[in-house]
């Protein structure tokens, strides 16, 4: 499969975020699930899609190592396309940078400092940020609004987060976004929730500001590869 096919056939197209980014709009995305269901796999697919479209992605991994994060990309990419040419592969790895933080070290101020360093030194100017492992329990609306402001300042068009929901916490927003993000779901343009049902893994689109489909639509996940499929 060629690069163009990979882009056009990607089920993520339905979210319609790419067109908005081209228009200069900034958006926040969120992938939620209970622990261990594969949020990172979804984020990596979103990142790869963005990289294939020519964007630069900074993957911020909180509590994870560079090596493991890199392996995730290689793993998912191999599953997406068996025989990728070397040039595309090398181009993709140049479009990605991984920044890892220990859980207790990550803060918005630190991220800002590092990002500015990267941009000022002309090392890497990301278009898309993936923040995997952000602590939504310990950070509220203000922190998220601060991040939005930072995006505007640094010209980042989209930030995707992952958040852990808990089975024992029944709270949800009007759109069905589970806790701990139920009170701030209005800040996100897209919210996806991994929803395992019997032998099927679903990816529910709970919020979708620019979607080509109705909120409530479901994408399917291949349970063995966690690749997003068209439902």
């Amino acid at each position: 499969m060629g690069k163009e096919d990979l882009i056009t056939s990607n089920p993520l197209r339905v979210l319609g975020l790419d067109n908005k980014a081209e228009e200069g709009r900034q958006s926040l995305g969120l992938v939620m699930a209970r622990a261990g269901l594969g949020k990172t796999a979804i984020l990596v697919q979103i990142a790869l899609d963005s990289m294939l479209r020519g964007n630069r992605v900074l993957h911020v991994a909180i509590g994870e190592t560079i090596e493991k994060t890199r392996d995730r990309y290689e793993d998912i990419l191999t599953k997406m396309v068996e025989d990728l040419n070397e040039e595309t592969e090398s181009d993709l790895s140049r479009r990605r940078m991984i920044m890892t933080f220990k859980e207790n070290v990550f803060s918005r101020a630190m991220l800002e400092e590092r990002l500015k360093d990267l941009i000022q030194q002309d090392v890497f100017k990301p278009d898309c940020l993936i923040i995997d492992g952000y602590d939504f329990d310990g950070n509220g609306r203000q922190a998220m609004e601060d991040l939005k402001q930072l995006m505007a300042e640094l010209g980042i068009s989209v930030i995707w987060f992952s958040a852990v929901s808990h089975r024992e916490d029944p709270r949800t927003s009007a759109d069905g976004v589970p806790a701990p993000c139920h009170t701030i779901d209005d800040l996100f343009e897209v919210v996806l929730v991994i929803n395992p049902q019997d032998s099927v893994m679903k990816l529910d689109i709970l919020r979708c500001a620019y979607c080509e489909v109705e909120p409530g639509t479901t994408l399917l996940l291949d349970p063995s590869t966690m690749l997003i499929q068209k439902s």
């Binding site: 560079i66 790895s93 140049r94 991984i98 630190m110």
Partner: peptide
């Protein structure tokens, strides 16, 4: 090519 950074405080 910067692969990544590890932030430890």
């Amino acid at each position: 090519m910067i692969i990544g950074t590890v932030e430890e405080g």
